[in-house]
Amino acid sequence: METVRKTALFEAHEALGGKVIDFAGWALPVQYEGIIEEHEAVRKAAGMFDVSHMGEVEVKGPGAFDFVQNLVTNDVATLEDNQILYAMMCYEDGGVVDDLLVYKFASDHYYLVINASNVDKDFAWMQEQAKGYDMSLENISSQVSELAIQGPIAQEILQKVVDVDLADIKFFYCNRNVTIEGAKCLVSRTGYTGEDGFEVYTDNESILKVWNAIMKVGEPMGLKPAGLGARDTLRFEATLPLYGNEIDKDITPLEAGLGFFVKLTKENFIGKEALAKQKADGLPRKTVGFEMEKGIPRHGYEVVVGEDVIGLVTTGYFSPTLKKNIGLALIDAKYGEMGSEIGIKVRKKVFPATIVSKRFYQKNYKK
């Protein structure tokens, strides 16, 4: 653990009994009380996550819009100031560099939130694409700390420590001028759990007092600190993709079932030509949901039909909310019809599974 990076909340995690692991080069808690308990707290009340390992890049200047619009798959032209967009950055062949959130602060100022494991790669990619645009790129990841408070009573808890009316922040919007315990914060109505909630960004020096203030008012109401384990089970139930599982350089957004976030009607973006061709030709692979009576699926397990390997499990778990063994798999498209029977190879034994809707859990966002 000596070589990994620590967030400004590292000592708080230790004090709370967090089980710390190395995640993408960061020392972060995988759980405190337990993954199931933390998962259920987010579904029924609220949980709070340290997500300070995420990356942040600022794009400023007259050419900022044109640059970001060309960089990502979604249509940045639809954004109002202080609105947020989910998108992907793609390679020319349609594979995914990363998925990200695009915050529009102004027509000449954007804020990109990227995955921790990809920060260096993503920033190098952005710099490579930036040539010819009249704007500046700055990787400010090391200066920013972030926490996420998620769950049905997240607003009620956070409202007790902020100086604005959180009801005014709509889903996928933000307020850049929120004060918590004297610290200036950016608060957005976003998250990665399928529940209503907020993400709070501030400087490294202020994040501990922000965390402590929220925990102090929230714990009596049912707020629990939550780790990476619950973060993964929650996002999976809500069918939210994880880079390296559902999307990566060898899996396109269309194959991952994320075509909604790919606007082929845009004039241009990196990877558009390849994605348009893939859509026109028909997808060779597709991502499906499945459930199984016996055996718990895991990332990388083979999916079979008879003797043929038709794909791989991208994510699989025993769902704490649904009490079922469920998974997502990227498979040969011809086998992907709803209700089809497939097999999941768990170690050396094949267990039967059925293709079902990927909508495992009904998201509870506040629109």
Rank of each mutant, 00 (worst) to 15 (best):
I21C: 00
L100C: 10
N325K: 02
K363R: 15
C90Q: 03
G311S: 06
I251F: 11
I331N: 05
S107N: 15
Y111V: 00
V162D: 12
V164K: 11
D99H: 03
Y365V: 03
E56H: 13
L254F: 03
G222Y: 00
V144Q: 11
L228S: 06
G327H: 09
Y111C: 09
D168H: 11
T233P: 00
K358M: 12
F261K: 08
F351H: 15
F198A: 01
E58H: 13
G229S: 01
V59R: 00
G327S: 06
K44S: 14
I114F: 09
A8Y: 04
G222S: 05
T315N: 13
V303F: 06
L85K: 09
A213I: 01
P225S: 05
G300V: 10
M89Q: 13
M338E: 15
A124F: 02
E56I: 04
N139Y: 09
P220C: 08
G282E: 10
K366G: 01
V305C: 11
Y133L: 03
K294Y: 12
G227P: 11
V210W: 05
L101G: 00
F260M: 12
Y173P: 01
E11C: 03
V68T: 05
Y365W: 15
K277R: 14
G244I: 02
E219L: 07
V102D: 04
A27N: 09
D122C: 08
G63R: 06
T233S: 12
K279E: 15
E199V: 12
T354P: 04
L330V: 09
A148S: 15
Q278S: 10
I35A: 12
E195Y: 01
D50E: 07
A213R: 02
K184S: 14
F171T: 05
P320C: 01
S117W: 01
E273D: 15
T265A: 13
D134K: 15
N115V: 10
M88L: 12
A148G: 04
T354H: 01
L258H: 08
D75V: 07
A15K: 15
F351K: 10
R285P: 01
K19A: 11
F351E: 13
N115P: 11
K286P: 07
E80Y: 11
A41R: 02
A148F: 05
